[in-house]
Structure formats: structure tokens, C-alpha cells
Design a protein around this nucleic acid. Sequence first.
DNA 1: CTGAAAGCGCTTACAG
DNA 2: CTGAAAGCGCTTACAG
Lengths: 334, 334
Amino acid sequence: MKNLTISDIARKAGVSKTTVSRVMNSPEKVEEGTRKKIEQIMKEAHYTPSATARNLSKQISSTIGVIVPEIGNAFFGELFKGIEDVINKNDLSLLYCSNEDKAQKDFEALDMMKTQRVKGVLYVPAVNYPAVRMMGKVQKKLEALGCPVVCIDRDISLHMDTIHFDDRKAVKTAVLSLVKAGHHKIAFINGNEEKNILAIERYEGYREGLKEAGISEDERLVYQGEYQQSYGYLAMKELMEKELDFTAVITCNNSLGRGYLQAVHEAGRADAFEHISLDKIEMLDLLRIPNNYMLRDSYEMGRQAAEMLISRIAFPDKKIRNILLETSLVKETF
Amino acid sequence: MKNLTISDIARKAGVSKTTVSRVMNSPEKVEEGTRKKIEQIMKEAHYTPSATARNLSKQISSTIGVIVPEIGNAFFGELFKGIEDVINKNDLSLLYCSNEDKAQKDFEALDMMKTQRVKGVLYVPAVNYPAVRMMGKVQKKLEALGCPVVCIDRDISLHMDTIHFDDRKAVKTAVLSLVKAGHHKIAFINGNEEKNILAIERYEGYREGLKEAGISEDERLVYQGEYQQSYGYLAMKELMEKELDFTAVITCNNSLGRGYLQAVHEAGRADAFEHISLDKIEMLDLLRIPNNYMLRDSYEMGRQAAEMLISRIAFPDKKIRNILLETSLVKETF
DNA sequence: CTGAAAGCGCTTACAG
DNA sequence: CTGAAAGCGCTTACAG
């Protein structure tokens, strides 16, 4: 079925396009009788105005762009849900694009958002651009966008609205909690700074925790590679093989945590270590497998990020905000 | 930064808008010298044409709408990924909207897609509309959309392109496999037809399997409620309490499967039953927990659905296609 | 309260 | 090979 236009409605109603437009945009300005009649006709004809035409005419947009690494990871899945809820509540549409943690994809995503002339962008950078010396390019792309952007989860050192977790503190808390439980040799499996500036923060948190506990760092217990299950698996496997007699492990995101679990279960040493992961790992509670983690409420982060963007769109000159979210230690025993 | 328009570029290059437009749409028609010059200027100015204006002018769209229940469920997460890959490959944008398995949200999503004048829609219906007697409304909305739609996973008995799994056969296979392993009392936890027509198919598969095995159905072993973890949990709990001495359980989606696991682990009877779920349940392999499931490759379903939509857009008069995907039994032991 | 006209940023048939 | 003009479906300042 072909879409009707405002002219079709105007003709059917015997009025001008202007009047039809008014019943949609400022109904109080049109006489009740004609308004009712036009509304009736629009309804019968299932008329829906074209957002394309309206956006062009009004020089606005009704869609928000969302760029995330991938939706498969539960952390980002929840984040996305938080975003979605706010977007729906505000009658906006959501243009989705993943960047798969790759700079190239990231750039394409930003270009696409520009082409689509979105109202604003919620952006989880694929890469830690400062660390890989690509700041110029992202910065240019971001400026070229011509719309507000909120940077989520991964800071790229630009003067813009941002929101992320206090991961330094989270890891420090984890370390101190383990020490308190009697652990002095704590292995640390992390990603690296190129992918994610948080890797640095996390490592700092680890060191601060040890320092505060009066424990000197043992380099052999520190693994910093990719934020992937496979890396977590290999790191933990190597750690076990080296027999460094550590008694606890901290893994710095849920993928690494899964890798840890894979390794210890494969080795039949699931109960050999105390483990704290950053982020909850799904299924464990359900299977009644004891599990400690630093809870980072990514739904809430998504929600707040979206709210921040919407407020930025409304007040472009508002002061820049950088939100730091707290995490909390959750111990699940059965 | 304000977005530049084609007029800005034309002025800078000292040519008409027409010529600028041509270098974007049919470069071969413009003299090489001027083309190069214009391209250079566009590049320097970081000019990106507005999709909004182009779409309005060309009376086309460059975005595909995707309506899914929720992205949190791994089954739909994978489906979505399959869709996304095809959409990206075809240089299209993705407008996302979830319906949360609710008819109301579904209608809003369809309205939104219409407003946005998308090129086509990939649609997982929230509800089994024929069963709840709301066919009229969806049908009208679908027609009003004015663009091709591919119906995914849940058939709603409309004459349109569809794709779904052969779940009847899947469940039948599961039953026969269990019987072969010596099980004669097989509990069956399913959703209901209002939500999902597949519930009927699955139940049929269950009955066919039993029949073929010469086993008569025991109604007390059949639970059909919501496709949710909580229902799976309650159903399994009740089944165990009733001491019906069944030895195997089939759960009809991954949420129900999780509920089953929750119940048996809570009761400390994880090894008491043979279990086959529809869809893989994440984490189990990693934790080396034996698990049998009917593999339904939802990534592939998403991919094929998207391909089907794109082909439908290209050839509107092509014959309607209804794709039925096969599943396979996977046994994971350690 | 209503409408004619200009404009949003593009495309394209037509004329040169 | 190039450009002026009309048009896509809306909105809105202006005039009545």
C-alpha cells in the first residue's frame, strides 16, 4: 500500500496542506469542526506523516544513534536496554550500529550517524584512541557529526559528556576484600590499555589495593592481554601450570571471568581459588556456584547516559558532565 | 559544527548543485577535471550528504527496521547479529525497536517503522495474533506499512515471507532420542500458543514422538505456561514434588531450560534427570556440565531473513517464500 | 481561523 | 558535459 501524503489528506478534507499540518503541530490553532473532520479523515486513511519530510523541513531529527561494541555481551546488552527504555519514553527512534571493538568499524559507524543526521549519539568507543595515537581522527569525526555525543564506559580524554564506572576503586575494593579474607597472593587478569583506558585504571586499583595492604606486587601474577574469554582461559591455565601458589584471582571483565571459569573447571580445580570478577557472570547463581563479583549496573549506566544526552540536546550550553558510577561487591554463596 | 549542504559545496567549487549531485550519483557523467575538484572540496570540507534529503528526494529509504522481542535472550541476540551483518554488508542502516513480547509495544513499533518510512521490516511478532483474535489489527498495520516485511520465528498465518525452525521435528527428535536411551516417562515443559504458535508445533512434536515410540501420553507430565525462566522453574519444582517418577525432561526454549536447571540444582538433583532443551544454554559447556540440546542456529535464521528481505525489496513480485530451517541434536558430555 | 508561498537538502528530466 | 527548474512531503512566517 502506497503511503498517503499531506496533500491527499488536504484534498479529501477540502482544506489546504497548511491546515492539515496545523492539526498535527498546533491543533489549538484550527477551528474545532475542521480539526475533528481532518482528524477523522487521517484516521480512516491510516495516515502517518513522513518523519523524513518532517525532519528535513524542521531541520531536526527524531532518532538517536547508538554505537556499542556488541550486544552479545550481557554487560552491553543491559546497557543497551537502559538506553532503549529512555529513548522509547521520549518518543525517539533508535539507530543501532555496532563497532565490534574495531576502530575501522567505529569510523564507519560515526560516518553513518552523520549521514543519517541523528539528533545525538550514545557512543562506546571501540578503542582507546589516545593510546593508539588516533585521537585526531576520532576527534574530527566527532566534531563533524554536528550533534551532541555522550561517551560511555570508555573515556577517550575528550572534553565531552562522559559516564563510566569507578573501576579503580572497584578493583581496589576487590583486592582489599580478598586480603581481609586471608589472601596474600592475588593473581590479576586484565585487558590492555589499547583497547580500553579502564585497563589502566584497573591495574592502578590493583596496585593501590596491594600497597594499602602492605603487599608487594609479584609481576608473575599479573596478566594483561585481551578482554576475551580465550585470553582469560590461557592466562589462568598458565598461572596454574606455573604453580605460583596464589590463592585468589581477580578478572577484569565478564569475558575474562568466563575464561577463568573454563580453565579451573577443565583442570578440576574449581574450588582451589577465591575469585572476584568485574561484572556478574550469568548462570552461576542459578547453578548455585559460589561467585563473588563487583556489580557494575550497566542498565543504569545506559539509562543515565541517555538521560544525559537528552538533556544535552535540550540545553546545548549546559556545563559538561563527567559521571563516575560506584560499584559494589556482591558475594554469592549457597 | 553545522552540517554543510550541497549548495555550500557547489558555491565553493563554482558549479551548480546539479553537478555536485552528479559526482555523487553518476560520476561518469561529469568531466574528470571538475569531478576531481569537487571530490577534493567535499573531502576537505568533510561533506556528507544528508540521507534525509536524499531519501525524500529519491523516494527511497536506506534503513531497515528490526522488531524483536528483546535482545537480552541469547537466541535473539544471535538472530540480531545475523541480521546486522547482512544489513551492514548492504550499506543499510538499522532502526531497532523491541516489542517485549507485548502486542501493544508491537503496534507502536510498527507505527514507528511506518513513520520512519523504512525500506523493509524484519519482524518477530510479539504475540500469536491468530490465537488471541487480533489478526485484523496486525494485518492492517502490516499493510499500512507500505514496505516489504519478513516474518521471523513466529508464524502468524499471513501470506508473506516467513522463516522459522522445524520445531515439531526438533521436539520429536528429542523424544525419540530419549526413548532410545531408555526413557519412557518424559516430562515436557512448554510455553503456550497465545504467545507463540510454535508452542503448538512443539507439543505436536512431543505427541508424535511418543506415538511413534508406542508410549501413551501422561498428561501429568505436560506443563504449558509461559516461555520464562520462572515458569520453567515452577513447573520443574512441581514435577519433582509430585514424584511422578519421570526420568527425562524436555524444555522448549532456553529460558525454560534455565528454569529447569535452577530447580534441579536447588533441589540437589542435577543428575537425576536426562534433559534436552531447545536451544543451547550458555555457560554449561564452559563449566563442563553435561547438556543436550536441539541446536537452532538463530544467527543463520537472522542472516537468511535479512537476505530474504533484501531480495524481496529488489524483486517485489517474486513468489512468496516460507523457509523452514532444520535443527540438530547436540550432546555435550565431559 | 485559513491559505499561498517559500524553504528544508537533495535528485533528475529536460534543455542546451 | 552542465545548469535551471521542478519536485519529494512536510513546516511556518506572512498576509488576509
